[in-house]
Simulated scan of single mutants.
Amino acid sequence: MTVPMMCRWAWRKSSRSTGNGQCVELAFDGGAGALRDSKNPTGPMLVVASGTLTAFVAAAKLGKLDLR
């Protein structure tokens, strides 16, 4: 997969974020999506197909990824 230009991405985090630095930020750009640690915005990121990231977000919203 070709990685899109990072500067074009609009990073966002959950509206439930409390600002304590324990958040993950997401960005989408065409066919790709990315995750990064909000404490380290210039650090590494995970880039995946946008459909994969969309499925991950949907599963998280449904509680399918909650620890039991």
Rank of each mutant, 00 (worst) to 15 (best):
T2S: 15
V3M: 02
M5D: 15
C7L: 12
R8M: 09
R8L: 15
W9K: 09
A10E: 10
A10W: 02
W11D: 01
K13W: 03
R16I: 00
R16K: 09
N20F: 03
C23H: 13
E25T: 02
E25Y: 04
A27I: 04
F28M: 03
F28G: 01
D29R: 05
G30T: 07
G33E: 09
A34C: 07
K39L: 06
N40V: 04
N40Q: 09
N40C: 05
G43H: 00
P44G: 15
V47T: 13
V48F: 03
V48I: 10
A49E: 13
A49M: 04
G51M: 04
T52N: 10
T52Y: 00
T52E: 10
T52K: 06
T52R: 08
L53G: 07
T54W: 02
T54Y: 06
T54A: 14
T54V: 10
T54H: 12
T54D: 12
A55R: 06
F56T: 09
F56L: 13
F56E: 06
V57W: 07
A58R: 12
A58S: 12
A59N: 04
A59Q: 08
A60V: 07
A60H: 03
A60G: 02
K61Y: 14
L62V: 04
G63I: 05
K64G: 01
L65R: 12
L65P: 04
D66H: 10
L67V: 15
L67E: 15
L67Q: 15
R68P: 14
